[in-house]
Simulated assay, not measured.
Amino acid sequence: MSNNSTNNNSDNRPLFQLTKEELMQDFEQIVRKVVNQMQVEQVSKDEKEFYTRKETSEHLNVSYSTLHNWNKSGVLTPFKMGAKVYYSKSDVSARLNP
């Protein structure tokens, strides 16, 4: 039983230490990312400044693999927010009206 209590104590040790300022900076960065993602998702489709991969492929009537090829060749420039990929409305519009 003493082994379990020793293991429990070692499990509660911090893996690393942060100053209060570092912790606050990390927290603020996470909150900013979440707020930005919520803003992107809440804007109506017509007012959006950025489109998801699905929306972009639907607007341009192309497959995901075509989008991927265009990304690699520089036809479109995607950006990531978290795990999601977005394209700017202006880039998509420019591709629609070359």
Rank of each mutant, 00 (worst) to 15 (best):
N3L: 04
N3T: 05
S5D: 06
S5N: 09
T6S: 10
N8D: 02
N9W: 03
S10Q: 09
D11C: 08
N12C: 14
P14N: 03
L15Q: 10
L15T: 12
L15N: 11
F16K: 10
F16R: 14
Q17A: 13
L18N: 07
L18Y: 07
K20M: 12
K20N: 13
K20D: 15
K20R: 14
E22D: 07
L23I: 01
M24T: 12
M24Y: 04
Q25Y: 07
Q25D: 14
D26S: 12
Q29T: 11
Q29P: 00
V34M: 14
V35N: 14
N36R: 13
Q37S: 12
Q37F: 06
Q37Y: 11
Q37W: 04
Q39M: 12
Q39C: 13
V40M: 15
Q42W: 03
Q42D: 07
V43G: 13
S44I: 00
K45H: 04
K45A: 05
K45P: 01
E47H: 03
K48T: 03
Y51D: 00
Y51L: 14
T52M: 01
T52A: 03
E55I: 02
E55W: 04
T56D: 08
T56F: 06
T56R: 11
T56W: 10
S57V: 08
H59V: 00
H59E: 05
L60K: 02
N61L: 10
Y64Q: 04
S65P: 00
T66C: 11
H68N: 10
H68L: 09
S73L: 08
S73M: 09
G74P: 12
V75R: 15
T77D: 07
P78M: 07
P78I: 03
P78V: 05
P78G: 02
F79Q: 00
K80C: 00
A83K: 13
K84W: 00
V85Q: 07
V85T: 15
V85W: 05
Y86M: 02
Y86G: 03
Y87F: 15
Y87G: 00
Y87I: 07
S88A: 08
S90D: 09
S90F: 01
V92C: 06
V92S: 08
A94C: 02
L96G: 02
L96S: 05
L96H: 01
N97T: 10
N97P: 01
N97Y: 12
